[in-house]
Simulated scan of single mutants.
Amino acid sequence: MKTIFKHIKGDRAIWAIVAMLAILSFMPVYSASTNLVYVVGNGSTTGHLVKHIALLIMGFGILYGVHKIPYRYFSGGSVLMLPIVILLLIVTIAQGNTIGGANASRWIRIPFVGVGFQTSTLAGLVLLVYVARYLAKNKEKQIVFRESLIQLWLPVGIILMLILPANFSTTAIIFFMIVLLSFIGGYPMKYIANILGIGIVALGLFILVAKAFPDLMPNRIQTWESRISGFFSGESAENYQVEKAKIAIATGGVTGKGPGKSVQKNFLPQSSSDFIYAIIVEEYGLVGALFVLFIYFLLLFRIVISAKKATTIFATLLVIGVGLPIVFQAIINMAVAVNLFPVTGQTLPLISSGGTSIWMTCFALGMILSVSASKNETEESILDDNPLDILHETI
């Protein structure tokens, strides 16, 4: 055990939280996968559990590898990754796949592995690191709005517009997090108000174009409208899932029905991913529900501690930028299950099944651990990093 601890750096509490969430996910995923086996006819419950464990092991490998990288490399790395994620998003729009009943092409297949990869999740992570870099680099400077439109908001706008056609909820979350990070990073409030106005206008134009040319993006606007109207009226296809989730929660009681004894998992189409929290509440009751919620708030607390202890502006913004979305996504997933939010398709980080979510969450946590493991870095060394120099060092 001591040998293992010698090789892991950073906040030990975050390591423990990640391990705990991973272990907690085993039984719910194994139990909820019966829907995929007996209703959809896809594989076996043991097979789904083994696949989930394999994805978690790969996630821990990513977490370990990333946390060993000096966090200053992520600054220049985000610049190098921007054109790559833009290209990946274009490929996804052109020839992406639908997986798990999604009504839009959000995934591309990883060659020779056969695993789907949701490119928007990677794009959001890269974008948040890039925004943290820009804000840190200009913290002590007078920001000129026109210049920031080109340097900061143009890449943000391009990537968000490429994500939007297939995934409105992810686009909204990323945009909200970027605005929040900009506010924390000292970007002028009057400029943030301008960006919000531009964002609303851009979304309006997108909706008008989509309605005028429905063949370009079939059913996307209708899906958004049905989810929002169904949330308020209680009459939509997604409302069926919400009703089953509410039944699962209501019948869970204080201590739950017990591991593997969920009934509603047989009726919830996304019981092992989007609505896994409802299955947790049904099987483990209010006690299990509050415990999972407590773990995520504990993670939020450790993220804030890591941000406060960071030695540079970039490190602080990096931790906030990649850390808060994890907790925010968890809260949204749980809120959807209890019908406080419209259906969004957001998974429960490190608990829901799904490779992309696990891997990108581990990548983000690896960056946070890299920051918490760093010693006496200087801001100048980070901001002076040239992306080409980093590429040269990597080669």
Rank of each mutant, 00 (worst) to 15 (best):
H7S: 12
K9Y: 14
G10P: 01
W15L: 08
V18C: 15
M20Y: 12
L24I: 13
V29R: 00
S33W: 12
V37F: 04
G41P: 02
T46P: 00
K51I: 03
G76C: 03
S78G: 05
M81H: 01
I86K: 09
L89C: 08
I90M: 10
A94T: 10
A94E: 12
G100M: 08
S105G: 06
I108V: 15
R109N: 13
V113K: 05
G116C: 12
Q118H: 07
T119Y: 09
S120D: 07
G124K: 10
A132N: 03
N138Y: 15
I150E: 10
L152H: 05
L152M: 12
G157P: 00
I163A: 11
P165Y: 07
F168K: 07
F168E: 06
S169T: 10
S182M: 15
F183M: 09
G186R: 03
M189L: 15
N194V: 15
I200H: 04
A202C: 14
G204P: 09
I207V: 15
A210W: 07
F213W: 08
F213E: 04
L216R: 08
M217V: 11
P218M: 15
R220I: 01
I228N: 11
S233W: 15
S233E: 14
G234M: 08
N239P: 00
A245H: 04
I247W: 00
P259H: 08
E283G: 01
E283Y: 03
F291V: 12
I295V: 08
A310G: 05
A315G: 15
L317V: 09
L318H: 04
V319N: 06
V322Q: 01
I331T: 05
A335K: 07
V336P: 00
P342W: 11
V343G: 02
P349A: 15
L350A: 12
T356H: 01
T356F: 06
S357N: 13
S357Y: 10
M367Y: 09
V371L: 11
S372H: 07
K375H: 13
T378M: 13
I382Q: 06
I395C: 09
